[in-house]
């Protein structure tokens, strides 16, 4: 528990969170969301919740990013209706 490190990671988490919802490009948004997940994993590991950090690293940063990108590749640039 080093509060300076906590604060640094937390700032980056907030920046990534805001960037995720403001970026127009869906692929960019999902990549930034992966970065957000990984920073949350770092934050949890740093605060001593190793089990939660492990879950976040595998599910949040690993599988869900792949699933998002797989879903985005099935979309088209402009909506048809």
């Amino acid at each position: 528990m080093i509060w300076q490190l906590d604060l640094l990671i937390l700032t980056l988490v907030v920046v990534c969170g805001i960037a995720t919802i403001t970026v127009k490009d869906l692929l960019g948004a999902s990549v930034i969301f992966g970065v957000y997940s990984f920073l949350m994993c770092l934050l949890w590991a740093e605060m001593g919740a190793v089990d939660v950090a492990f879950t976040e690293a595998t599910v949040g940063a690993g599988v869900s990013t792949v699933l998002f990108i797989a879903a985005i590749l099935r979309t088209t640039r402009r909506s048809k209706d």
């Binding site: 190793v50 089990d51 950090a53 492990f54 879950t55 595998t58 599910v59 690993g62 599988v63």
Partner: peptide, 17 residues
């Protein structure tokens, strides 16, 4: 130790993904 069925299952699934 940290980890368990859920995390291990996701890692195993990730290998097939």
């Amino acid at each position: 130790s940290p980890g368990g069925g859920f995390q291990g299952g996701v890692v195993l699934g990730a290998s097939f993904i």
